[in-house]
Design a protein around this nucleic acid. Structure first.
Lengths: 202, 202
DNA sequence: AGCCGACCATGACGCCTGTCATAATCACCT
DNA sequence: AGGTGATTATGACAGGCGTCATGGTCGGCT
């Protein structure tokens, strides 16, 4: 999260994602981004000749990659690998942030989608790619845990959708009960989808 | 949806909701709203002395009331009243709109939350109220169908969250598969939560 | 008739935004 | 040393935004 010493370009993309997820796309001005990234203002036109659209798209892609990369890390950190555990880890990431830093931020991909899906095609595509990458990672983890291929994709989409929606509700209510409810009610369904197979032989 | 002949004030609130759900809060200018509502521009300061903030808040509250009112209507329109059927109806509202009019719009409450939750307290409160009203209506319907009180609230929150998230994903992907997956995977869980009781006597 | 409040019309203001033009500075290579 | 391309700096610009001041129009009440 706080790998502060990258190039200015990468810092700006990161800062854009951070500001977008807090204030929305329109609320995150380019001047704010360079200030937040401690980057020179003149670098904007140099690194992002495509303007704000390009910067937003890269921030969205960055967020998608980040979410996807987190999935195997969650898997590695779980003592007992179950689909419900993965869902709990995904939601837990949010509940922990909200407990730590308050309900200031949401998902930048959702923010970009809500603001640009109907007006900026390239951003919509970037958001679709981000969701796809994220869902793909979750689906892979589910298959690895024994969920049959036929259902893994659908369940992964549901997990991502439910968490995404719960984040919005949680932010509005300033209460993580939506995230907790998703874990509580959806978890058992996921575990029930695991195909029985011999586990006695590791 | 198209009760066009209300007072100018109500039309402006309705138009604000429509524009917000398509372009986001920042993308929906006040000039656009009056144009969309075929309302006189001078009425803005008369009916909404609180400025854009007031207008947005009323649009959010209107959307919450609208969503809540739809629930009993869904119930009335179902031949066999089941929790899964209600979820299918809620999601179906979106899939039908997307099939009919394309993926232009999302949920105005989500749009307002994403853009204002951290900057405009009153809007955040309005969004929380809207989600609460909606969830309350769903919870009531679940109880009516035999879901025990203890689980009804949580399941209602999950239904709303999942649909809300699936709408975002669907809009990004220009594909209703997320909505369909939510119905397919979540529906059975809801029906399984219905307490067994004698139904032979209507 | 005369008034008065509700409602509408319009133009202007100040602010902030994204973008660009231009020039200065730096790093590095031959 | 000289030059060359990458990077940074800064100021200006046009456009859009929300808001407001001012004045016009209507309808109903006394």
């Amino acid at each position: 999260m706080t790998e502060s010493e990258r190039g200015p370009r990468e810092r700006m993309v990161f800062s854009a994602a951070q500001l977008i997820r807090r204030r929305g796309v329109a609320g995150a001005g380019m001047r704010d981004v360079v200030a937040h990234a401690h980057a020179p203002r003149g670098s904007l036109q140099h690194y992002f000749p495509g303007g704000k659209e390009q910067l937003v798209n890269e921030a969205v892609r960055w967020a998608g990659r980040y979410a996807a990369r987190r999935v195997p890390r969650f898997m590695a950190g779980m003592t007992e690998r179950t689909p419900a555990g993965l869902l709990a880890a995904m939601a837990g990431q949010w509940t922990q942030e909200y407990a730590r830093e308050g309900f200031a931020g949401g998902c930048p991909v959702a923010a970009a989608t809500v603001a640009c899906a109907d007006s900026v095609e390239s951003t919509r595509e970037a958001a679709a790619g981000a969701f796809g990458e994220w869902t793909g990672a979750v689906r892979g983890a589910l298959v690895e845990m024994g969920v049959p291929d036929a259902r893994a994709e659908g369940l992964a989409v549901v997990m991502v959708s439910a968490v995404e929606g719960a984040v919005v509700v949680a932010r509005a209510e300033r209460d993580v009960r939506a995230l907790e409810a998703v874990v509580r009610e959806l978890g058992p369904v996921l575990d029930a989808a695991v195909e029985r197979r011999d586990r006695r032989h590791p």
